[in-house]
């Protein structure tokens, strides 16, 4: 479990190796899949990784009840089906689910508000793990607290399973705007900034010096179209998670689903090229139906989970 040093020359599970791995996902699309077949479709479409889970967020919303870590057997089947990295979700604070996923050999763990939280006060101590973690955030304080706990990647929370990009935009603008504000603060003000954000001083210093988070910063929660993906990239994020937006689209027509998956991959790469965005947005069939965020009562909002 602890970062392992097998000899003086060789190190594993270090922050450098976890952060470095997260850098490799940049400019890419990570797709939610619920079966090995979907994982193969995602890989063929150009996904940089798949997120293995039993139900996509749209179905978790529909079904209600407690959403937990997926069955290890389905995660193993997905690991066996593709050559790209496989991620999987654990409940916030559920460090035993994380131990299980690490034992299964998943490449990245998402400590996710999409599942029902297991702890209402504390997140997982992620520094204890060899496997890297991604966490959601709505603002800079939350993002830096997760990094301090050991997250190697941050994503916007957005509002998963809605197909409505507005919350992802809100969270991206909040995080990036707060970074820009810190960038221009005089150094002597940074301690008070750290106090106000509720986040470690050294990470505020990092943001001040570099104008970015110490880890990669992805978009997630409500991305449903190539234009949504390109919007998040143009706002300044490093890559995109697409949950329900792919396999809940096209009215179930597999060809349209594949086409949309490919289109979102292309749009994430060529995010600043409107000609290509226009071309890939054609004839994708129906996007996921979606839920307007304003129609969700506060208790139905997943983004408010996490502390």
């Amino acid at each position: 479990m602890l970062p392992l040093m097998s000899d003086q020359q060789t190190q594993q599970g270090t922050t450098e190796i976890k952060f470095g791995f997260a850098e490799m996902f940049k400019g890419g699309v990570i797709m939610d899949v619920v079966t090995p077949d979907q994982a193969r479709v995602a890989e063929a479409a150009g996904a940089t990784a798949v997120m293995a889970l039993e139900r996509v967020p749209a179905d978790i919303r529909r079904d209600g009840g407690v959403a937990r870590m997926s069955d290890p057997s389905m995660i193993k089947e997905i690991i066996a089906a593709v050559s790209i990295p496989v991620m999987a979700k654990v409940r916030i604070g559920h460090f035993v689910e994380a131990q299980i996923l690490q034992a299964l050999g998943v490449d990245f763990i998402d400590e996710s508000e999409v599942l029902t939280p297991a702890d209402e006060s504390f997140h997982i101590d992620k520094l204890k793990f060899k496997v890297p973690f991604v966490n959601g955030a709505k603002n800079l304080g939350e993002a830096l607290r997760r990094v301090a706990e050991g997250a190697s990647m941050i994503r916007t929370k957005g509002e998963a399973g809605t197909g409505d990009v507005v919350e992802a935009v809100r969270h991206a603008r909040a995080i990036l705007g707060e970074i820009r504000a810190i960038r221009v603060r005089p150094f002597e003000e940074l301690m008070s900034v750290a106090r106000d954000l509720g986040t470690p001083y050294h990470l505020v210093q990092y943001v001040h010096a570099h104008g970015k988070l110490p880890v990669v910063n992805f978009a997630a929660g409500g991305i449903a179209t190539p234009a949504d993906a390109a919007l998040m990239m143009q706002l300044g994020l490093d890559g995109v998670f697409v949950g329900s937006g792919i396999f809940k689209s096209g009215g179930g027509d597999l060809q349209k689903i594949e086409q949309r998956a490919r289109a979102i991959v292309r749009a994430t790469t060529h995010f600043d090229n409107p000609d290509i965005l226009a071309e890939v947005s054609e004839n994708l069939g129906l996007p996921m139906t979606g839920i307007n965020i304003d129609s969700l009562i506060p208790e139905e909002r997943l983004a408010s989970r996490g502390w």
């Binding site: 060789t10 594993q12 890297p132």
Partner: peptide
């Protein structure tokens, strides 16, 4: 993926 998965990634 000759050395395995992410858990097998290393520095030397």
């Amino acid at each position: 993926n000759a050395f395995g998965r992410q858990l097998d990634s290393f520095r030397t």
